[in-house]
Amino acid sequence: MSDELAIETYGLCKRFRRKTAVENLNLNVPVGSVFAFLGPNGAGKTTTIKMLMNILSPSSGEGAVLGCPITHISPEIMAQIGYVSENQKMPEWMTVGGLLSYCKPWYPTWDDAFCDRLLKQFDLPMDRKLRHLSRGMKTKAALLSSLAYRPRLLVLDEPFSGLDPLVRDEFIRGVLELTEQEQWTVFVSSHDIDEVERLANWVGFINDGALTVCEPVASLQSRFRKIEVILAGETTARPVLPADCLLPEASGRTVRFIDGAASVPDRMEELHRLFPVGAQMSASPMGLRDIFLTLTRHGRVQKERGAA
């Protein structure tokens, strides 16, 4: 297990009877990164996180969190992990103050001053029961109880669900500020790309239980481009595109596809050779959302072809 990786998995699988939720997952999350774990609904994000937190046991494969095997996460390691999930059942009979008082003794690194600061920042009422808080306030309370001990790893599972835009913004700004200050590793799963894009410097795409991408955001964005080729004159013959070009489509003399080749100069050279002389070729960069949509659609197309 590497010291430079906060999370690492090898061939991690989870099967629920006949359904495979996660298949052969190889994930590396570097220490200090903000890792966005993206995928459509039902892709296997939450299942993966539950395996990482030892809530579910994997069907096969192995993994480690902060250097500790995921099937044997000790309370000492758990005390260095902060976890916030939209699905988590909070002890709703407790007040915010009661929750913090209950959590504090479990964490040797609990920082009262930091907790007070966060409390002011999140503007939470100490004496109100969790069951009487709005969803956004509950998420803030969960986050507060997961940050006050300065965790080395913060795991956020769909933290933005149900939050209004203002709270989302506060939440993201809060996490960004803290990660910059504290150099924590943040592992955030979401299907809300726009929000995550502001946070993440690493990204992993999971679709149908399989990890399709796991790399820095900058690398990913420089690799993926939208290519549009306008063929010259009356040419109707279409060249055969490289197999790794995604979502090709043609309309009249225009051919569009997504290119995600690892080496951009080589790929451009190859494309220039493919298309007849006179064709106009343009490449435009893509945002994380477009890349996510492309990979998701491509996954569906592959699946339909496989089924056919």
Binding site: M53, N54, P75, M78, Y83, S85, N87, Q88, Y107, V155
Partner: peptide, 18 residues
């Protein structure tokens, strides 16, 4: 069931409670 032992959403699962 304040600390339930079944399901996957219990608060204590992700806390350092032995």
């Amino acid at each position: 069931q304040d600390e339930p032992l079944v399901g996957t959403t219990a608060f204590w699962f992700t806390r350092p409670v032995p």
